[in-house]
């Protein structure tokens, strides 16, 4: 059995090695696949804070992914059309700069998470699952009916946004940007886990009554976790939109929320590297099975059912041979 510490080291190195190999072998498509896995991993790292540490089964995290995507789409849309963005009395110029877009994506999704979290956390268990799902649909239908930004057809951005000092149109450079962001998010996640906040949140998942008795507010802890979680997933959404140079309401779809949970569960719930392992396997499965058959989702379903019924700890759990934290 392998210690989880080694996995935490080996997984990012492996993720880094794939595109470097692809660069030497001159396979740009593999780099794009690795970038896709990295961004999905980032989104799932965000969700894992709420799900893994906080025990909040959110089936609506696509909201934040989509908001991040639309933050990028709207800002870049106004920049490429040279039209000002008017919000009430305020007027902004669009931008093609990634750091600015990321900041907006994080702020917008954190605010949405605060609002959705404050409403949804009034409930728990199954209600929470259904309500987050319903809020996801609300944003999905709103995006479809919002014809100013493409409605159902979505928005195309012709040129990928820029990052100071880099040429993001080169696949390996864009991968590097995403990879560094993922590593930072993982570091933040590891710090959160060990911090007093993370410990209290962990306790609030297990025995909320006891946490309340020692004078902490479990609801506030969970809300904070939900906001941080939403903000990270929002950032991933902005990167994902930049990867595809396209935003559409499908970024808000509930299938995406479901897939984010799947990534975590394949990898291992509550594990630091669970989302990364899960995202890599998911993209690999999608690519490999998708090449074999048009109906690869059937097999994904079978694999998932097998994991849920027979391998509760996910891949990281299998490798370490230890049960992970239970949700």
């Amino acid at each position: 059995m392998i210690g989880e510490r080694w996995i935490n080291l080996a997984v990012p190195l492996a993720l880094l090695a794939v595109p470097l190999y692809a660069l030497m072998a001159d396979e740009p498509f593999t780099i794009t696949l690795a970038t896709r896995a990295t961004i999905l991993a980032l989104a799932a790292v965000g969700l894992n804070i709420a799900l893994g540490i906080g025990g909040l089964v959110s089936l609506g995290h696509a909201v934040f992914f989509g908001l991040g995507g639309y933050a990028m789409g709207i800002l870049a849309f106004h920049a490429q059309n040279y039209s000002p963005l008017e919000i009430g009395p305020l007027t902004f110029a669009g931008t093609k700069s990634m750091p600015v877009i990321w900041l907006v994506a994080v702020i917008v999704s954190a605010m949405a998470a605060l609002l959705i979290g404050a409403l949804s956390l009034r409930t728990s268990g199954v209600y929470f699952i259904m309500i987050t799902l319903a809020f996801g649909q609300m944003f999905y239908y709103f995006a479809i009916s919002w014809s100013a930004y493409g409605g159902e057809d979505g928005l195309s951005i012709y040129v990928r946004n820029g990052f100071p000092g880099l040429n993001t149109l080169v696949p390996i450079q864009f991968f590097a940007v995403c990879f560094v962001v993922l590593c930072l998010a993982l570091a933040l996640n590891a710090m959160l886990r060990a911090s007093p906040f993370g410990l209290a949140l962990n306790a609030a998942r297990q025995v909320p009554q006891r946490v309340e008795t020692v004078g902490l507010n479990p609801m506030r802890l969970k809300l904070m976790a939900f906001v941080i979680s939403g903000a990270i997933t929002g950032l991933a959404g902005a990167l994902f939109a930049d990867l595809n140079r396209f935003v559409s309401p499908s970024m808000f779809s509930w299938q995406l929320s479901g897939e984010l949970i799947i990534l975590i569960v394949i990898g291992g719930v509550g594990r630091l590297m669970g989302p990364v392992v899960g995202a890599c396997l998911f993209v690999a499965l999608e690519h490999w099975l998708g090449g074999l058959t048009d109906f690869w989702h059937v097999w994904l379903g079978v694999v998932l059912l097998g994991i849920v019924l027979f391998a509760r700890g996910g891949v990281v759990g299998l490798l370490t041979g230890k049960a992970g934290p239970h949700v």
Partner: peptide, 21 residues
């Protein structure tokens, strides 16, 4: 007897199987 997360996942897996099937 399983946690809600497992129920969500297993039934999500069933959707994939039913839809694509």
């Amino acid at each position: 007897a399983a946690p809600h997360l497992d129920q969500v996942l297993a039934t999500f897996a069933l959707i994939l199987i039913f839809s694509e099937g």
